[in-house]
Amino acid sequence: MIDLAQPIINGLLLGGLYAVIALGLSTIFGIVRVVNLAHGDMVILGSYLSLAFCMWLGLNPLWTILLVAPIMFCVGFLIQSVLFNRVLGKGMEPPLLMAFGISIIVQNFLLLVFTSDARALKSDLSMMTISLGEINISLLYLLNFLIGLAVILGLRQFFRKTFLGRAIRAASDDVVAAKLVGANTSSIYAYAMGIAALTAAVAGVLVGMTFIFYPHTGPQYLIIAFGVVIIGGLGSIKGTLVGGFILAMAQLLGAHFFGPGYQLLCGYMVLLIVLAIRPNGIFGKA
């Protein structure tokens, strides 16, 4: 049993990180009804921005969150107001291709500036572990989990308690009624995307501290985000957290039983099974 405890604990901790990665994708789908295929690239853009600040200012990667998050908020706000808002209500394909276009641009911009070398956000944390009997808990994983949880709970409070958060929920409930009370829904959407990008930035810094990354790593995290929201249902914060746990757990248990090469495979298998049984996700509405 003790050897199973290790992957389960790691799965739980990693699940918190996965949930933050997926948070923005889920939020934007729930509010704007757009599947942002560039979400993974926004996460990686966050990683590279952090890398730039680390190199330039010599900061610890963790502190760069304070700089990267507001910058990414602006990036998201601009992307929505300049690009996505103009193709809403024209069917599913235009926003999809728009996201593809943004994705290509972000990836190749990063390639141009940072080359195709593998990168990592180095910090002292990456080597530290806490030992509980025979179980080792990576301090970095623990930190990911805690920060992830904080972001998720913070976002939940934001949606519940602030005027903007309420307005965003109102617009996602009934966009016509929101217009009728005087809300400018385009600007609400822009704020929502800004917030989604902000969560992507936090995810990006954490991802960069935990794994190596390349300019083309974005789609990999997009798929993880998809996995999480498929399991949890698009547009639900609670579902996102549960989805993160299940996906990460499936991956790490898979790696435990079949070897590390099968880690991703097991995650996808669980996804397909969930999709085949509940085509709209576990918490999704039919």
């Binding site: 998809f226 498929i230 397909l272 999709l275 085509p279």
Partner: peptide, 26 residues
């Protein structure tokens, strides 16, 4: 098709992509 034709819209898109990823890993 046994799997993905149960899915609609976006889910279909993601389902096909996941199959491709599975084969890549396999």
């Amino acid at each position: 098709s046994l799997f993905i034709f149960r899915m609609k819209g976006v889910y279909f898109s993601i389902g096909t992509w996941i199959f491709a990823e599975i084969l890549m890993i396999w």
